[in-house]
Design a protein around this nucleic acid. Structure first.
Lengths: 224, 224
DNA sequence: CAGTGGTCTAGACCACGGG
DNA sequence: CCGTGGTCTAGACCACTGA
């Protein structure tokens, strides 16, 4: 995994990525100014900028003209609309909230059951599996509207930053439990999404299955 | 739309993008060498390279070290696995083919009905609407396995290059027509995907609705 | 005003592809 | 060997932020 035949900008990027991943530079922390950082890494400012640009593209840092660069913090807005792309059928955003209905330990995993509400109506049931080792002491109140997105909580309470995710989709008939919590008539089809979420170091930090009632809402993506 | 307050690299990129979009540089054509092109555009090679890098990221050109840059050509591989992300439930790729079952004109649109087959079994029904004006003389054989992907045909026969797409998803019970052509038992849920495809100039060039039988196959995406 | 990132340049040198 | 794109540098100058 340790290639020495990499270009300088790639090595610089790897060094910076590692500092973010291991918490040396926690979310919200300001990075040193470019000339300073360039000298520390032994590269020119131009080369450093190439590395920083790549980190910005990966949403690991945020650069602000005239101020500096900071390690990215998950905001509710980003968690909601970057990783969660549900919209009204007409394309409008909706008022979303969520609450947990169960937390239990199954072997080496913590399993969380969650409901997502859009405009007050439950439209998504989720089963979230977390590695107990990374999420020791996981605690959130049950049956109460959550203040923050899960990914914001992962980062703040457990130092786990979700950097990207892979999803696969299928259509299913809602099972009994799903139909009950989403109040669906028997036989209603639901959109099932299985997601693996990865942290900055490309480790799987969450396995999630979501069942969506898509009668009023739709799940949207963009292919480039 | 014509900002003069853009950086040089953005203006250079826009010029190049326009040449690709209007067919001045058709797919497959080699671009002039960087120093030549830089001089023609009146920018340094470094600035030009930044513009080219962006075009490469957008899959509009392909750069090959030691040879040069060419305008991207849609290959079957790209069309299949970049814009079409169906996989076996176990994650493996499958042998896919497709055939048209109907072509008709509805007002200003050409409507095409298509089936996609995976390993010989029909698993997707599609209804594709194209602007008649851009696709004059559209012609492909019915009920025969198609040699190329639709997007390859759009580009070769009509000069239309699909650059990106937006999709939204829902779960539905298969309607009678869908159930018939996919040979589904009554009441089988299907994954419905509505796609708008855009060309290089960000114009909608295709509206497509797909109905997928996801009992054996799944539709996968990646969120970054 | 000082300090930051953003743009742009010119040029040296490297690495690859193909005659 | 030549021509191509790839890397890296040093430095000039611009544009934004905030005291």
């Amino acid at each position: 995994m340790k290639l020495t035949n990499q270009p300088l900008y790639a090595k610089a990027e790897a060094v910076l990525r590692e500092r973010i991943a291991d918490g040396t530079w926690p979310p919200g922390m300001a990075l040193p100014a470019e000339p300073t950082l360039a000298e520390e890494l032994g590269v020119s400012q131009g080369t450093l900028r190439r590395a920083l640009a790549e980190l910005e593209r990966a949403n690991l840092i945020l650069k602000v003209h005239g101020k500096g660069s900071v390690v990215a913090v998950h905001t509710t807005e980003r968690a909601l609309f970057h990783f969660f792309r549900l919209r009204r059928a007409d394309g409008a955003k909706a008022q979303a909230s969520s609450m947990l209905t169960a937390i239990r330990t199954e072997g080496a995993e913590i399993v969380v059951e969650r409901l997502r509400l859009m405009d007050g109506q439950a439209v998504i049931r989720e089963r979230i599996a977390l590695p107990a080792e990374r999420f020791r002491g996981f605690d959130l109140p049950l049956n109460r509207e959550l203040e923050h997105e899960m990914y914001v909580h992962y980062q703040r309470a457990h130092g786990v930053t979700v950097a990207h995710a892979e999803e696969s989709m299928a259509a299913e008939i809602a099972d009994a439990e799903t139909a009950r919590v989403l109040r669906l008539p028997p036989g209603t089809p639901v959109l099932r999404i299985d997601r693996d979420a990865f942290d900055v170091a490309e480790q799987v930090v969450e396995r999630r299955t979501s069942w969506l009632d898509t009668r009023e809402y739709r799940y949207g993506i963009s292919l480039a």
